[in-house]
Write a protein that binds this DNA or RNA. Structure first.
Length: 505
RNA sequence: GGGCGCGUAGCUCAAUGGCAGAGCAGUGGCCUUUUAAGCCAUUGGUUGAAGGUUCGAGUCCUUCCGCGCUCACCA
């Protein structure tokens, strides 16, 4: 049983009264001739042309302000394109209708109003209302706010700022905070630009299974679910990689997918349990070509979405203009830690060098994991400007191709900026025998019950045995790119309904 | 999971251990060109939950719930 607040009870009483008076508070249909923006622009054009033709309009939107002043009332309605002012006058509407509006309508209600556009004395383009009707009654009031003049400065009192309320009731957040709506418009523009970029370069957008009998393509714990009829456990994918590369075997030369990945890991300001990934695979290319395409793609998106290549992220300027800095992992670590990883070919030797720097070292960690932790601790946080770190240890990268002549290194890069990882790419391993050996290697490096180990994917190996063209592959977290483009400190700001712990009501 | 912090009216926030308050919103008035107007009056609370200390708890203690930051974890 719904518990109503006092404010809601008052609105419910209004709603009941309207019904008794024969006014349907939730009518089935609405009419509209212009959006708020179109009405204002149409009027301004007419005005510029001499104003001979009156602009008549029927507008819809949510009632966001109301200023009753005796026999006239000003109000603003807001639709998806902005706000427009309504002017209601007793002379035009009659006493009863005006009283009906000011008494029975509440902030938050959706209304429809018809009349003629004009400009008020203070210069605002406004609809002079001749008739209006209710489109949808709001029972729960939206958070209220007010601009106040203090010492000549407009102080905007916060509307809805509590992060928990904003995320749990994103609808209210969106309704009252236009900058939140803007984030998701930017987000859509980013994915649109990415698709345009890849489409124009001959990449085919595909969709591969989210429910997978085996997970793979990344090192992460999966979510497990179950198919009842098949009596089979299934995993929510942690990456698209192994399916997309199967498509290269099928002679689809350039493929990409934008979709959701699921990882059963910790949640923090750059990690959500489900997040949006872009992966592409490009036959006959290597990771250096992918690197060049990455710069080109990110700059293309910035040009399209923001119209500029220098971003401000959390007070830091980030210059996306290519070429981005290229830093061999070995050189970067040598500079930041003084440790030359090439001088430590074994985990034991590297661990000892790390202990000399007073670092905590997991005694069971393989060499690649130790290197990865050095990168995470010493390199990643310092990389504010876009930087490609390249040449990764082979043992943490089981799907990448070795560098010719350097059996312990693979052709892999990650791009970092603003102190976090943006994307990850490599020249993909296409040698089925090497791939099988890598799976076995990984199986040894991780305990059998470690869900992060890469399971042996026999079907993937079979696909590869049919012959996979040499190719370069790429993966990027879209949420993080959107964070950069919207100057958002937390991934939850760019996900409409981020995961929060369930709360008993 | 550890550490630190927060949770008070619909929203944003106050309140030395001593009468739970303000602004906005709401409600009732006045007001025919306002700018989330102005003026007058006024309603609204299980202070996240449960226990404890105390003459007295929003405040101190314990446990629990939720959120934030952070560390750990994590491609």
């Amino acid at each position: 049983m719904t518990e109503y607040t006092n404010l809601e009870k008052i609105r419910l009483e209004k709603l009941q009264r309207l019904r008794r008076e024969g006014i349907e508070p939730y009518p089935t249909r609405a009419q509209r001739t212009h959006t708020s923006l179109e009405a204002i622009q149409t009027f301004e054009r007419s005005e510029a042309a001499g104003g001979a033709d009156p602009v008549r309009a029927t507008l819809v939107g949510r009632l966001r302000s109301m200023r009753p002043m005796g026999k006239i009332t000003f109000a603003h309605i807001e639709d998806g394109y902005g706000r427009v002012q309504l002017f209601l006058r007793q002379n035009d509407l009659g006493e009863d209708q005006l009283a009906h509006f000011t008494r029975d309508y509440d902030l938050g209600d959706f209304v429809q109003a018809s009349g003629e556009m004009f400009r008020t004395r203070t210069g605002e383009v406004t609809l002079r209302v001749e008739s209006f009707r209710l489109l949808s009654k709001a029972i729960t009031p939206l958070p209220a706010a007010k601009d106040e003049l203090v010492d000549g400065q407009v102080v905007r009192h916060a509307v809805l700022t509590d992060p928990e309320s904003r995320y749990r009731q994103r609808y209210a957040d969106l309704a009252v905070n236009p900058e939140v709506r803007q984030i998701f418009q930017t987000r859509a523009a980013v994915t649109r630009a990415l698709r345009d970029f890849l489409d124009s370069r001959g990449f085919l957008e595909v969709e591969t299974p989210i429910l997978q009998p085996l997970y793979g393509g990344a090192a992460a714990r999966p979510f497990i679910t179950h198919h009842n009829q098949l009596k089979q456990d299934l995993y929510l994918r942690i990456s698209f990689e192994l399916y997309l590369k199967r498509l290269l075997v099928g002679n689809l030369e350039r493929v990409y997918e934008i979709g959701r990945d699921f990882r059963n890991e910790g949640v923090d300001r750059t990690h959500n349990p489900e997040f949006t990934m872009l992966e592409f695979y490009w036959a006959y290319a290597d990771y250096e070509q992918v690197m060049a395409l990455t710069e080109e793609m990110v700059v293309y998106v910035a040009d399209r979405v923001l119209g500029r290549r220098i971003l401000t992220y959390q007070g830091q300027e980030i210059d996306l203009n290519p070429p981005w800095r290229r830093l061999r992992m070995r050189d970067g670590l040598l500079e930041k830690t003084g440790i030359d990883i090439d001088a430590h070919p074994t985990a034991e030797s590297l661990a000892q060098a790390m202990r000399q720097l007073n670092l905590q070292v997991d005694p069971k960690a393989p060499r690649g994991k130790l290197i990865d932790s050095l990168v995470g601790d010493f390199l990643e946080p310092t990389l504010l400007q876009p930087t490609f770190i390249y040449e990764y240890p082979r043992d943490i990268t089981p799907l990448a191709k070795s560098i010719p002549g350097s059996p312990h290194l693979v052709e892999r890069f990650e791009a970092f900026m603003a102190g976090f990882e943006l994307c990850n790419a490599f020249t993909e391993l296409n040698d089925p025998l090497d791939q099988e050996a890598r799976f076995i290697e990984m199986g040894r490096a991780y305990a059998a019950d470690d869900e992060e180990r890469h399971p042996m994917d026999e079907d993937y190996l079979r696909a590869m045995r049919y012959g996979m063209p040499p190719n370069g592959g790429f993966g990027m977290g879209i949420d993080r790119l959107v964070m950069l483009f919207t100057d958002s400190a937390n991934i939850r700001e760019v996900i409409l309904f981020p995961h929060l712990r369930e709360r008993e009501e």
